[in-house]
């Protein structure tokens, strides 16, 4: 059963992929948006950051990716300096964020092209990434010819094409219908079971976070802080059986209650 436990910050850095130490991020106006946050993610772990909109969870992700700088604190990513992060971090945005003017193949190959990889290697790795997301026959299609779910899978393929150790996902399935979202959740779990990257998954869906992750980190409204943590117990591999089980429902209820408490605590001041 899920237990709210304090973070183990003294764990050996060797086994960790991401480590946030007293991270804060303030707006230009000086208002604190995030933190202080301490978070450690083990290598190969699937962690969800769950919180209401505006709690800074997306900001945390951008900080880890090196797309923004923290106001204070330290970020350690097992991926080298910010300029090298692109090679070991894959980032999936809330929107597919594809270049509409070029084909699926060129969209997926972009990270390798930017790194001046040889054409033959780009072709090989793009084919492999597209096969992983089951879009091989759409390589020459343009983004506008694809459905919302397919675009998101292209975006995922692009994040996978560099074989990253870490996947940062910013509410990637939030804009999709539920049927498509369930399918992509299962696809993502299958990928993770095979590749075992470290995944940090930002979402505002309790159900999604419990279904997908090994650990759910609940964040409070602004300024975003870690309010609770839950270890999700589930039989592997997770699938429809887990989604419909009483165990799943119970854990969702537990997480849901913690999320509600962060909100009401705020209202009570």
């Amino acid at each position: 059963m899920a237990v709210s436990a304090p973070l183990d910050l003294d764990g050996p850095p060797a086994g960790q992929a991401i480590r946030l130490r007293a991270i804060t991020k303030a707006y230009r106006s000086g208002v604190l948006a995030l933190g202080p946050v301490d978070l450690a993610v083990r290598r190969g772990e699937f962690v969800s950051l769950l919180g209401p909109s505006g709690c800074g969870k997306s900001t945390a992700l951008r900080l880890i990716a090196g797309l923004a700088k923290p106001s204070s604190g330290r970020i350690e990513v097992a991926a080298g300096s910010p300029s090298q992060r692109g090679h070991s971090i894959g980032f999936v945005f809330q929107e597919p964020t594809l270049m509409p003017w070029t084909s699926v193949r060129h969209n997926v190959g972009l990270p390798l092209q930017l790194a001046h990889a040889p054409a033959a290697e780009i072709a090989r790795r793009v084919d492999a990434a597209l096969a992983r997301v089951d879009l091989s026959e759409f390589a020459e299609a343009y983004p506008r010819e694809l459905s919302g779910g397919m675009k998101m899978r292209v975006s995922l393929a692009r994040a996978l094409v560099t074989d990253p150790d870490i996947l940062l996902m910013d509410e990637p399935f939030a804009a999709l219908d539920e049927i498509t979202r369930f399918r992509l959740n299962d696809d993502l779990l299958a990928l993770w079971r095979e590749l075992r990257q470290t995944i940090l998954f930002v979402t505002h869906s309790v159900f999604e976070s419990v279904y997908l992750s090994q650990r759910v980190v609940v964040m409070s409204p602004r300024p975003g802080r870690i309010a609770a943590e839950f270890r999700i117990e589930a039989p592997e591999p997770r699938g429809e059986d887990f989604r419909t089980s009483a165990d799943y429902a119970a854990q969702c209820r537990e997480v849901s209650r913690a999320l509600a408490e962060t909100g009401s605590a705020r209202v009570r001041g």
Partner: peptide
Amino acid sequence: NLVGLFQLYGASGLQTLWRLKLP
């Protein structure tokens, strides 16, 4: 977000101009 993506993958100014901004 596309600008962020180019930044993440270490695109040079010229690459960003040619592959992103101009198109």
